[in-house]
Design a protein around this nucleic acid. Structure first.
Lengths: 175, 175
DNA sequence: ATTCCTGCAAACAGTTTGCACTACG
DNA sequence: CGTAGTGCAAACTGTTTGCAGGAAT
């Protein structure tokens, strides 16, 4: 799979360290066993602020952990998301993406290259909205994306959107 | 593919008629040929307020139009989205979903069953936000989802989320 | 008549599963 | 030592593509 764009966005080591320190505890509290694989996947996700996909995480880990299987990465991310230890971000663009940042925040999404960065808009906490009279619906959280073009993509004339970029691919077998 | 939940939400015939009437004109204006298939796909999407997937639309059309191919539905939706005649809604839940309603609005998403309904929160126009100081990012639109549980799913104890529901499936081939 | 569009089937990409085995607790 | 977790490979779902024939302008 192609790497997720915006890979340059690494998180501050201090923040990563803080998250990883408490991870083992939070894991146990959630009734999850602390395995080498789980730790590795979580750390990789915490360090990578580009909101990588499961496959993308697998690719970056596979070098260091040759035994690691793709299915395990999917299962781990699934288990972590279920216990709210990571967050899954819906994005039509190339499968589900993940975020180790579980505190309230929004996302800036570039429609051209697909880059996605965290942003905090003060006052946009979940509590701000449920007041609006909605049917019998119980709102639990807000999912806000600010879609536009990142500084890099504003320059390049490109009107093509992310989905349409021809991606490098192995030559297609003739039929 | 399984049908998208919340299929009960049909749009008002008046609204559908209005959209369909102008569709042919808007198509030509966008440089798209007006084909039987394009009309059919658009009408089906306009009538279905449940934000169906491409596959789901194909399934509902295939009965009436036996010749229609799945690839065509995908291509049509893609072409329409590019010209902004329909809107693609990113959602981790079961692939891309589409909406014939292209006016500014938000979505209520049930995390249990995946149902998705349009909702208009006054004052949440795109213009409300870009003022917030963001780097070199040019915000073009806001993508807001209110995630929670619909009235139907609040009743049923279910804590399982939509992704985890076992879906009916043909028996798996033994290996 | 020209160009876009469609149907078909195969290829692709992303994700999930059954089963046997490993290792956490 | 019991059970959650893992590796492997195959299967499955959703989507895209090349090509040849067909329809819209």
């Amino acid at each position: 799979m192609r790497p997720v764009p915006g890979t340059a966005s690494d998180r501050s080591p201090a923040e990563v360290a803080r998250w990883c320190e408490s991870f083992e505890r939070r894991c146990r509290a959630a009734g999850l066993r602390v395995t080498t694989q789980r730790l590795a996947v979580y750390r990789a996700l915490a360090e990578d602020g580009s909101h990588p996909t499961a496959d993308s995480l697998y690719a970056s880990l596979h070098g260091r952990m040759p035994g690691l299987s793709r299915a395990t990465v999917y299962r781990i991310l699934d288990s972590l998301e279920r216990r709210q230890l990571v967050r899954r971000i819906g994005g039509s663009l190339g499968g589900g993406r993940f975020d180790a940042n579980v505190s309230t925040h929004q996302h800036l999404v570039c429609r051209v290259c697909g880059a996605m960065v965290d942003v905090v808009l003060p006052g946009w906490s979940g509590a701000a909205v449920p007041a609006s009279g909605v049917p019998g619906f119980e709102i639990e959280r807000l999912d806000v994306r600010l879609v536009g073009r990142c500084s890099r993509c504003r320059g390049s004339a490109g009107e093509a959107d992310a989905r349409s970029r021809s991606r490098p691919r192995a030559p297609r077998r003739r039929r």
